[in-house]
Design a protein around this nucleic acid. Structure first.
Lengths: 252, 252
DNA sequence: GCAAAACATGCAAGAACGTGCAGAACAAGA
DNA sequence: TCTTGTTCTGCACGTTCTTGCATGTTTTGC
């Protein structure tokens, strides 16, 4: 049996059942467990599964499933948020848009007949806007981080530094009325800070589960948020805190 | 038995079973394993299968089938070119890849188990490589040009200037043995020139209709091409001109 | 805390591989 | 018919890859 065939069979089994056992595969293929372990190690290195004690579990499909479930459930809500968010746009504005699924939804919600200048470090947002005929698109390059779907690093910061925007669509992070906007990744936070610093206003669109959460890295003070787009069911008390600090609240 | 007959039988077997074993084919055809290995090597070079230890597995047809639904008729030929082009890659190399549908096909043909560093100004190439787990992806940002599908301009040039690559996959342009590589757009040519200047080698993959054509803006001399990937039916006279100037010819 | 299972690593044998070379088969031309 | 050149093929050689085993380490279950 070819090594490649073993790999493919393992892939199939992972896709079908979500997990495999090293010992079982060894007896099924008629090879030693060491060989199976080597196979699993290679597949794991290629990102096609995650190695666990005793075997391996599917990574990409499983992750995709959870994302699509999460996205699938909230996707309608995110589309509503996105429509409310793009309502604040006016023709001729320039925007920063960074990463996150909410921002991709916003990019999709941007009408095709509005003239805008958009700078983004998100491949997803760039792809969506790449065929909007009236959008002048500026891609903020740099080191691409798979988990974030965005570019970060010195090159990205340098590109941001040369630009200014009327509005910054700040995506997917922690949001708290006292700690302000926070992010989970240091490099990501750097870029967001740079964008925030070069923008006249900041817009954040969040689902309820993001309200009143925090992450390690500070991005911007709560007082610098100019537009906050939330679900209709968002807790009024929390919104009042943001409103008191100058944010304009928009209900989706 | 004729060589061509063997090739056809191997093709049939690949199509029917998805994989073949070198030893088994040798005894079936009554030839030495060396001869079978030679056959498989040629078929792999032509993109009709993928060589693995112990034999070969079918490669292109399935992927090409889904792609060709979306694209035109040249898609299949481009996939063959792409498979031949990625054959020159070795692990650990760093690449520049610019725009064009051929380069997107090449990006798709890059195997998922090879470690590479890739810098590209093409949104399409970046999207394809964004989920290759072992590819370190650097996005070369700048002003996005819809017609080209790439970023160009001062920002892009500055980003290219900070990088170097072992190989530059130069896409979609005019190609002539005396005028060298030429492009249709001034800004595009600038970026290509910068990439060419910072690369140790240049690879160009072209369909026959691009051979012996020219465009207004010069990109690189014919002598700077290190690898030229062409269709099997490419005119030998033209290829000889390039070969005389140092290019290594690869047939898809 | 202990034993068993699972694991990673190094190693050696064997299989598969690529390359260079020489002979055989074949076609083209004198 | 003979010569010449080309292509195909098999063999020899050194190299690379895979695999199973031995060894020592880590994890798990009790």
């Amino acid at each position: 049996m070819l090594t490649d065939q073993r790999h493919q069979l393992i892939r199939d089994r992972l896709a079908a059942e979500g997990s495999v056992l090293a010992g079982e595969l060894a007896s099924r293929f008629g090879v030693s467990e060491d060989t199976v372990r080597r196979d699993l190690r290679e597949l794991a290195k290629a990102g096609e599964c995650r190695r666990v004690y005793g075997g391996a579990v599917a990574s990409a499909p499983f992750a995709a499933a959870t994302i699509s479930q999460r996205g699938g459930h909230a996707i309608e809500e995110k589309a509503r948020l996105a429509n409310a968010a793009v309502a604040v746009l006016s023709a001729g504005q320039s925007l920063f848009i960074d990463g996150g699924t909410t921002n991709e939804a916003i990019a999709r919600a941007i009408p095709r007949d509005i003239e805008l200048t958009v700078a983004t470090n998100s491949l997803g947002v760039a792809s969506v806007l790449s065929d909007h005929p009236l959008v002048e698109l500026i891609v903020l390059g740099g080191r691409y981080v798979r988990d974030l779907g965005t570019c970060v690093g010195a090159d990205t910061l340098a590109a941001v530094a040369q630009l200014g925007a009327d509005l910054f669509f700040l995506g997917s992070c922690g949001l708290d009325a006292t700690r302000g906007v926070t992010a989970f990744d240091s490099s990501e936070a750097e870029v967001k800070r740079a964008m925030a610093g070069n923008s006249a206003g900041i817009l954040i669109a969040v689902t309820n589960d993001k309200l009143a959460t925090t992450a390690p890295y500070r991005v911007a003070a709560a007082g610098s948020i100019s537009h906050l787009v939330v679900e209709k069911t968002a807790p009024a008390a929390i919104l009042a805190d943001f409103e008191r600090q100058g944010a304009q609240i928009h209900f989706a």
